[in-house]
Design a protein around this nucleic acid. Structure first.
Lengths: 192, 192
DNA sequence: CTAGATTGTCTAGCGGTGCTAGTATTCGAT
DNA sequence: ATCGAATACTAGCACCGCTAGACAATCTAG
């Protein structure tokens, strides 16, 4: 029945319009600027329409976060396959720097996305798998713990890079230092 | 002039009452629950009184953050002097876990506190100095960069520990792994 | 001890927020 | 052509941060 499909297609397009607009708005003016009224205005619908597609405002940023996790996973996989752990580390930090609002939706803002385990989206697990694969050559036992250490260390750098709490000139050096220390290969960190 | 002092003392007490109440409220119900109305009700004053002591709501959490930074600095100094880098790392993560709302005010919530440099409160600098001193024995050149790496790595663990995004059973192991890798002493991580 | 100025506090209200009930309208199915 | 479902809107609730303006308490000066 293509008639039903027509409606469903329109519905899906509207949903994606909302999502895309929310993401743009957040990336431009920050998540605080993404209000129901402003978002509704931007997509040229009234506010209740948003609630026909998402349970609430939070669900919208959660949906953006899910998109981001899929993107990030791809980015990490490619980087790791091309350049191993160092490339993955820089790719992670670059993604966070290039898409601060999406990154915030993924890992900073309160979210209903379940990470722990059972029903956590497959995307979440496969993102973490990239960290596991990256540190595997350097693990001396508990690979998963080392992967968690790597991820949280990168996350810390990502969020503190955004606020003016670390020297902006040494972003690269921090990433290099982290990688060399975690991997045990103490190459001198490249400067600025 | 003790008359003026009387007033000033009362004023200072009120200010501290507000601060203490805000902190308790945040620690109990989260910062979202700290609204002008609720806070005013809790201290048994009307809302405008809050603005006689603080420029706005944000200034209140900033003041709490400043308290926390002083506390944290003391904690870190004692730990470092007693047990070096490993003790400092665990003390940091323990403080974050024990005072999540204060920690959030310090390093997660948007804040007007200037960290960068010039007029940043002395407390901020002396807190960072603890990290510098802790990694100094293990630095191979750029001590400050290594200190930044340590701090951000700990920060990452602190915030991800709070959300259910890392295995709660391996908190201790993650801290140990980070310390041993950063310091170059690869002692096997203690388990759960 | 009283008059005036200062300080403290309150009530009331502005524009904004997330979200929803109730109503009108459009559209596909019969 | 008609019915019913899906879709959209207007209007409004309770809450938010914040502030103007009125009123009461207190200190200062004569």
């Amino acid at each position: 029945m293509p008639t039903t499909s027509r409606r469903e297609r329109a519905r899906e397009e509207r949903r994606e319009l909302i999502l895309r607009t929310a993401r743009e708005l957040a990336e431009t003016d920050g998540w605080d600027a993404v209000t129901t009224r402003r978002l509704a205005e931007a997509v040229d619908y009234s506010q209740p329409v948003l609630y026909g597609h998402f349970k609430n405002m939070n669900a919208i940023s959660d949906a953006v976060a899910l998109q981001g996790i899929a993107e990030l996973t791809d980015v990490l996989r490619e980087a790791r396959e091309a350049g191993g752990l160092p490339a993955l580390a820089h790719a992670y930090l670059d993604y966070a720097a290039d898409h601060p609002a999406v990154y915030e939706a993924m890992f900073v803002r309160p979210t209903a996305l379940s990470f722990g385990t059972p029903d956590s989206p497959a995307a979440l697990k496969s993102a973490f798998d990239q960290f596991v694969a990256a540190v595997e050559p350097f693990a001396d036992g508990d690979t998963e713990t080392l992967a968690e250490v790597l991820w949280s260390a990168l996350h810390g750098q990502a969020v503190l890079n955004q606020t003016t709490r670390l020297r902006p000139t040494h972003r690269h050096a921090r990433a290099d230092t982290l990688v060399s220390r975690l991997s045990g290969t103490f190459s001198a960190p490249t400067d600025n």
